[in-house]
Simulated assay, not measured.
Amino acid sequence: MSWFRKLIKGSLIALPSYVAFTDIFYAVRTVDGQSMQPTLNPDGNNTDFVLLDRWAAASHKFERGEIVSLV
């Protein structure tokens, strides 16, 4: 049962860290559907992955030509 306690303890440490990191700094998300064609998902059959820079979004550092994701 010792391995189970270590697993639970590791999860209690890792999960909040992961949630905070993806909420504040960076997150990987999928893009599917036709909304971003032809830039992302050009053929409509595949799913593209994008890296969201939440740190820049919080400080409003946008430049022309960048994609902004709204939730």
Score class of each variant (00 low, 15 high):
Ala57Arg: 04
Ala14Gly: 09
Ile8Phe: 03
Lys61Cys: 03
Trp55Phe: 10
Ser35Phe: 13
Gly65Asn: 01
Asp23Gln: 15
Asn45Met: 12
His60Arg: 07
Pro16Leu: 14
Val31Pro: 13
Lys6Arg: 07
Phe62Lys: 00
Lys9Leu: 12
Ser2Phe: 08
Ala57Asp: 08
Met1Val: 09
Asp48Pro: 14
Trp55Ala: 03
Thr22Ile: 09
Asp53His: 02
Val31Thr: 14
Arg29Ile: 14
Val28Gln: 06
Ile8Tyr: 10
Pro38Gln: 04
Thr39Leu: 06
Ser17Glu: 06
Tyr18Glu: 09
Ile8Cys: 02
Trp3Asp: 11
Ser59Pro: 00
Pro16Gln: 14
Phe25Met: 07
Leu51Cys: 13
Phe49Asp: 11
Pro38Gly: 05
Lys61Arg: 07
Ser59Ala: 04
Phe25Glu: 01
Val19Ser: 04
Leu51Ala: 06
Phe62Val: 11
Asp53Ala: 00
Ala14Trp: 04
Val31Glu: 12
Lys61Asn: 13
Phe25Gln: 01
Tyr26Ile: 05
Gln37His: 03
Phe4Thr: 03
Val31Gly: 10
Asp32Gln: 15
Gly33Asn: 02
Ser17Arg: 08
Val50Gly: 10
Arg29Leu: 13
Ile67Trp: 06
Ala27Met: 14
Val71Glu: 03
Asp48Gly: 08
Asn41Glu: 15
Asn45Gln: 15
Ile13Thr: 05
Ala27Gln: 13
Ile8Ala: 00
Phe49Asn: 12
Tyr26Glu: 05
Pro42Trp: 03
Leu51Val: 11
Thr39Asp: 15
Ala57Asn: 11
Thr30Trp: 11
Asp48Thr: 04
Gln37Cys: 07
Asp48Ser: 13
Asn45Asp: 14
Thr47Ser: 12
Asn41Met: 09
Leu7Asp: 08
His60Trp: 03
Val28Lys: 10
Thr30Ala: 14
Asp48Tyr: 08
Leu12Pro: 01
Val50Ser: 05
Ala14Cys: 08
Leu7Phe: 06
